[in-house]
């Protein structure tokens, strides 16, 4: 009997070992698969964009020409547009999202938290093209009729700010694009911030309230230090989305390859340039430049995410020292 039992258990454990091993192999394969795809994308972008990169050299990244007729291409205008519009988006989205998350976790009465939270998550489900159309047909007219003339009348003469807001009141350009982007990424950042704020242990907050701290002091001194990592992660997720956003930007940025300091002059972003020009790019150099532009966007996103990781790591190591 004993013999039989051990035989059976041997058989079971052999089968289990086999299954375990194959399971391990499959999941490892899946994990590597992502890396292979990543490498493949980088390689194909490099190969496709090589003609442009080798022809223009490093100047590709700092020239503002984009002329399919003379086949002279430079990525400065789209890079500038992508960075500036995303930066504006962050300036707008981060404080508002922080406020939303703070309200939802600390201030709002309990019965209100769920409906507002759901509404914000629903905002994230709106397709970006809807934001773009809203931007062009509703938001841009408001900007051109009220906001921009008002700004120019009141601040137009001031040295630096005047330059930022000059230009014909079209209501499209870098600032409107940035604002639309900001609205688009608010739900992402806000819902992540809310979720991470909720992870703060109750006893920490309650002790703070207990010694007479205000809502603001609790959030700023207790919740935020505790959830810094997650909050920054949410911000960078929003930034990643803003950098790659295509359709909404295309509607309101003006799609023009001209460098201008003014936030109301039309410009271009990398993603909208690709969306606009790829299908009808006839010349090889044009196509290659567009692929190189794609590589640049890839690199920017990559660097942003790497920086985020690096930042989070250094925060984590400091954590121990501080407490």
């Amino acid at each position: 009997m004993d013999n039989v039992r051990s035989h059976i258990s041997d058989a079971i454990s052999t089968r289990q070992r086999l299954m375990d091993r194959s399971f391990q192999a499959v999941t490892t394969g899946f994990a590597w698969f992502v890396l292979v795809i990543l490498g493949g994308i980088i390689a194909s972008l490099l190969v496709g964009g090589w003609q442009a990169l080798s022809a223009f050299g490093p100047a590709f990244f700092v020239t503002d020409a984009w002329n399919p007729v003379t086949e002279r291409f430079g990525a400065l205008v789209p890079i500038y547009g992508t960075l500036v519009s995303s930066f504006i988006a962050l300036i707008i989205a981060v404080p508002i999202s922080f406020g939303i998350a703070l309200f939802l976790t600390e201030i709002a009465p309990h019965w209100l938290r769920r409906p507002i939270g759901t509404a914000i998550e629903l905002l994230a489900a709106i397709p970006s093209i809807i934001y773009g159309m809203w931007g062009l047909f509703v938001f841009a007219p408001i900007m051109s009729q009220y906001v921009q003339p008002w700004l120019q009348n009141h601040f137009g003469e001031i040295a630096f700010i005047g330059t930022l807001i000059q230009g014909a009141p079209l209501g499209i350009g870098m600032l409107p694009a940035g604002i639309i982007l900001g609205i688009m990424i608010i739900p992402f950042i806000a819902s992540i911030m809310r979720d991470v704020f909720l992870t703060t242990p109750k006893f920490l907050k309650e002790s703070a309230y207990g010694v007479g701290a205000t809502h603001w002091e609790v959030v700023w001194n207790v919740v935020l230090p505790y959830t810094r990592v997650g909050a920054i992660g949410g911000i960078f997720l929003g930034l990643g989305r803003a950098l790659g956003e295509t359709m909404a930007i295309t509607f309101v940025i003006g799609n023009t390859h001209r460098l201008s300091l003014s936030l109301f002059e039309p410009g271009n972003s990398i993603a909208s340039t690709l969306a606009n020009e790829f299908t009808e790019a006839v010349g090889d150099m044009h196509t290659s430049s567009l692929i190189a532009l794609g590589l640049v966007l890839f690199m920017i996103t990559f660097v942003v995410l790497a920086l985020a990781k690096f930042l989070l790591l250094s925060l984590e190591t400091r954590e121990g020292v501080k407490t």
């Binding site: 002329n67 295309t250 003006g254 799609n255 023009t256 790019a281």
Partner: peptide
């Protein structure tokens, strides 16, 4: 089929 326009805005 696409050129660098000296002025104005562009739509898709």
């Amino acid at each position: 089929t696409s050129v660098q326009w000296p002025t104005g805005v562009s739509g898709k």
